[in-house]
Design a protein around this nucleic acid. Sequence first.
RNA 1: UGGGGUGUCGCCAAGCGGUAAGGCAACUGGUUUUGGUCCAGUCAUUCGGGGGUUCGAAUCCCUCCUCCCCAUCCA
Length: 757
Amino acid sequence: MNESKDFLRVIVEEDLKKGKYSEVVTRFPPEPNGFPHIGHAKSIAINFGIARDYKGHCNLRMDDTNPTTEDTRYVEALKDAVEWLGFQWEGNVRYTSDYFPEIYEYAVQLVKMGKAYVDSLSEEEIREYRGTVMEPGRRSVYAERSVEENLDLLERMKEGEFKDGEHVLRAKIDMSAANMKMRDPLLYRIRHAHHYRTGDAWHIYPMYDFGHCLSDYIEGVSHSICTLEFENNRDIYDWVLETLGLSAPRPYQHEFARLGINYTVMSKRKLLELVNEKYVSGWDDPRMPTIAGLRRRGYTPESILNFCHQIGIAKANSMVDVAQLEFCIRDDLNTKVPRVMCVLDPLKVTIENYEGSEELDASYYPEDVPKEGSRKLPFSREIFIEREDFSENPPQGFFRLTLEQPVRLKHAYIITCKEVIKDGSGTITEIIATYHPESKSGSDTSGIKVKSAIQWVDARSAKTVEVRLYDRLYTCEAPEGVEDLNPDSLKVIKNALVEPALITEKPDVRFQFEREGYFYADPVDYSDEHPVFNKIVGLKDSWNKKIERIEASVDRISASVPRIKAKIVQIDGEVSPMSEAEQARFEKYTGELNLNNEVANTLTRDEKLSSFFEAGLADHNSPVTLANIVANEVARELKEKEASELKFTPAQIAELVKMLDDEIISNKIAKQVFEEMVQSGKNPAQIVEAQGLVQISNPSVIGPIIDEVIAKNPDNVEKYKAGNTKLFGFFVGQVLKATGGKANPQVVNDLVTQKLQ
RNA sequence: UGGGGUGUCGCCAAGCGGUAAGGCAACUGGUUUUGGUCCAGUCAUUCGGGGGUUCGAAUCCCUCCUCCCCAUCCA
């Protein structure tokens, strides 16, 4: 199965095919005002990915038009993120601030065209004048200023003669536009602030809506890809480029849904709060969804890129399950990373019949991972196992060590429990066991069958390490604020024990701690004297899941909650009543003309449709068929156009209906002909003639074609005969396809039914 | 409420008038010295609801509904 393309790539391909651009140029344009998160990774993957796939290029541009929020450290974080993900931007990093002079010139041009003006209303007044979603706004009196005055004022704004807020430059568009963004949007504001790059050179700064489209244009961007919340801004984007008369090729904006992941937050504000209020240790806290955090947690670039690929690109707001991300990192690390043994909660085991010590050979990788490498594992009388791997009263299906059940020490021997030693409080402090000398891993002749092999470390040589266990940051799927924070998102284990090899040999920085999960040597706090490992993600754990499920079902039974899925009943809203004229028309259509209610309703309520219908009716009196075509097909064309803009006329539609009535063509063909009429405005008869679309109703012509289809699809015939009646449509479809749609579908249906009996 | 979007499995997501892709999750069973991996299999008679057009509709038409975005001198 070939991979399906996302809608952006479809657009890019079409544009390329049409020759709209000679090269695809995209850009990743963050504002350097915070650390990039995995949502940015999605955007990076899209922009750089598309550029790579279509042999174009992608720029990295800092959209730094707001001096009060931006900083170089964020620029560095952004560059870092892109590089870490493995992408290379074209040329140098771009900055919108580099284009300030050019953008200013465009503003002057707009003023000269009378398309922009300096407004001196206060901030509150501007807001008030803008109106609401329901009421139109009204234009400022300053909109009437002369070009000369505007030019003078703008120049002086630039020179820093005015205070913040005293004036703004606005586009002169439409104060009553339904799109609020188009109500004379601000182009420039005065800001006496130090810009991290341009310093104090500027006193005015362009707004996003002005700076962004122009920056794209300046860079020769072809596809300006952004997130859904900018949909309303697209009109300004186009307005600026069009009124400035910037010639093709010019960029067009396309929007996709931003990434949401459950159990975390993605908004800059909330992330900043976590950092500032010290709920986390910093932007790179391993629980953060930032690139820096994910990276410190131990995620690989490959896993994140693969995640971005898996979730796809679409326009529906969505919330991806964090399990999908976790799958990606497990999947990546499974084949890459050495397995070592670590005991998080040690329980001492003394093997009473073992004397001395030895070194066991242990491969770093299991059989199914095609990688080489092994280490020596010290073994002696005293070892530690995971406390969870022993049970005095094992639940059903417990595979590990019990009083009766022996277990294998991974890479070593099988042991049997002899005695359990407890302290005063009843806590198990030690297990006395015996080993089976002939059960040595790799040369087992003992014949003992065990259900499981567990990890362990040798007491004398084990190294103490700190292990940081991370869990999801929030307790609920769609967290609102800090009140939803998970208090157990970080558990620090100071005295975990690991086998010596991973400190002394250090075969890698990422490991699988056997049966536990994937871990990463913390890049900041790790040292050989004080090793620190971050848990990246746990292994899938079907045992734990099973236990949880049993517990949950016990709870459910005791609570006896009836789990009934209620079908949601949808309440229909009110339909606006018909006017008197519409009422009369409706009655005429349903009565005299015999149309069904639905079609009549559609026609009556739309002035354009009803007049089109009635005009057609004058040419060919076949109300029902005509009404169906007008209400269904013509309606589509008339949705965003006036009748006068159409290439076809009511008379031509009447002609089409006549052919339908005379059974010269089938409904299917009629649609095809209609499409052609929409495009070319040719007469239906002409189209039918030219393309030979006359319907085939002769069974002796159709029959052999059906036979052929049946012969070619023996398995589907079988499935159909076995009761899969859905396949009926498949056969009809195949026959129709074979005849170029010309076969009379009714005849085909009858014949297919017969032949498939 | 005006405008712009969006609704297909528990979560993502293909699909563009002719057999409802795929991934995650979940669930069987097999292999396994990781309760991991791997392998085999199961998982949408139905696409937000209701009508209509059509031989045939997730796809076209009408209508209602849901959720998201827009009234920062943020981006």
